[in-house]
Design a protein around this nucleic acid. Structure first.
Lengths: 235, 235
DNA sequence: TTCGAATATTAGGCTACTATAATTTCTAGT
DNA sequence: ACTAGAAATTATAGTAGCCTAATATTCGAA
């Protein structure tokens, strides 16, 4: 009747902290107490407390009054959580009819309860997928992750052709809107215009019957990771 | 980043208590503090404490110094946990290659983390199964459960033909042994002998090439639920 | 270069759950 | 009916996680 998975003594909370710290680092954002507090929806003193426990367990280094760094143990644990989360998202989407805007929440809870055995079986059933439904790379069982070369849509030069590669998975509303524009990971498009002063970006998505132009606000565009396929418009 | 499923404020512990209380009742065993403590592997005072919290939440009635009864709310919650557990067992066994002796442990953890939406999708993918891999009936979404008429193997009269209907799912070793005898839920057999003084029971399982006789110790036989199909030997 | 705002930490409390030790209540056997 | 032993409870304490309020530190701007 044990409530915790077999993974050595990491609470759900601890796993969430490690995961968020890893994700911030991956985005190049320093993991400050206040950032973590905002990201995890807890008060800053709660973060200080957890940081203390996690450093004492050797999962991260803490320079008081200056953020934290994951140790290699901590990074390994974080990648484990990330793998579980992303394999779950892939499995639930492909085998149980979840849509990409609702799957995050379910995975968020299950990632702490599934065993590694189950995750490997799900991965196998999907033929070891390399990306989750939002285009995020899935760490391997060994704990390696290939971060694909990408940049925010706002930085793709006008005229280039790019692939939509990834989007954050946390906001269902945002995901539904992106989908309504015809964007899903893997879709390619050409940037046809970009307004200055944080203005909207216009992209052209080739479709079966002609192509459609979509205008995307700057803030939304910043959150869309793209991989440039064709450097410039050779027209 | 919420750690709990949407189900109203029941902790994993609380769900475990309710489930065990329900299961004891179903077996006709009164839910005394010490019984619960043993079943849940916690100390008796921990049970007293949880009983207090659960009664205050209206999930059970407590007559101090005399066990507990589930209220209808409590029973409904318990049946929910049981449905989640058993649907999970059925799904993991049929879709992800779990064996019936290892699936319990995984379901035990996931039952507290899965949403009802996911459970319904799993159930649908299996065509709404009515029994789990151990032969236990799965409560419906509405919270009804048909307890099939059954009795322990030790009480099936000699000469009768019966169906092996159910076995507890908690002990992998026991399950593997039972399987090695050729017994799985749904298998039929005839009781050919029963020794007195808590002696072994001998059953004959018809097979493709003749039939095999298996001798089963009394204690093991007590844990095997059977449904009598043919009252007596009409030979 | 110092000072004030922003940020982080400590101090102190709360809840849920666990435990052990001490006490109370029940019940069965005489 | 009494009493010993079993069973349940209360008393007390610890851990993890959360909180708010108070304090400490840092850093940028005047």
């Amino acid at each position: 009747m044990s409530a915790a998975p077999e993974r050595a003594g990491l609470s759900r909370s601890a796993e969430d902290y490690l995961k968020v710290i890893y994700e911030l680092k991956a985005k190049g954002v320093p993991a400050h107490t206040s950032t973590l507090a905002a990201e995890l929806s807890v008060a800053p003193p709660s973060v200080s407390g957890m940081i203390k426990r996690l450093s004492e367990s050797g999962l991260l280094e803490h320079a008081p009054y200056h953020g934290v760094e994951l140790t290699s143990t901590g990074r390994h644990a974080a990648l484990g959580v990330l793998r579980r989360h992303r394999v779950l998202e892939a499995y639930l989407t492909s085998k149980l009819g979840y849509s990409w805007d609702t799957v995050h929440e379910e995975a968020e809870r299950l990632e702490h309860a599934v065993s590694d055995v189950l995750i490997e079986r799900m991965a196998l059933a999907l033929n070891n997928p390399r990306f989750d439904p939002h285009g995020a790379p899935i760490p391997t069982e060994a704990g390696d992750m290939e971060e694909p070369e990408s940049m925010p849509l706002t930085e793709v030069p006008v005229g280039s052709v790019a692939l939509f590669s990834m989007v954050g998975d946390r906001e269902p509303e945002r995901l539904r809107f992106i989908e309504s524009l015809g964007l899903r990971p893997g879709v390619s498009f050409r940037v046809v215009a970009k307004q200055p002063f944080r203005g909207p970006v216009t992209i052209r998505i080739p479709g079966t019957a002609g192509s459609s132009d979509e205008v995307i606000g700057h803030e939304l565009a910043e959150g869309l990771s793209c991989t440039v396929v064709e450097e410039l418009d050779h027209a």
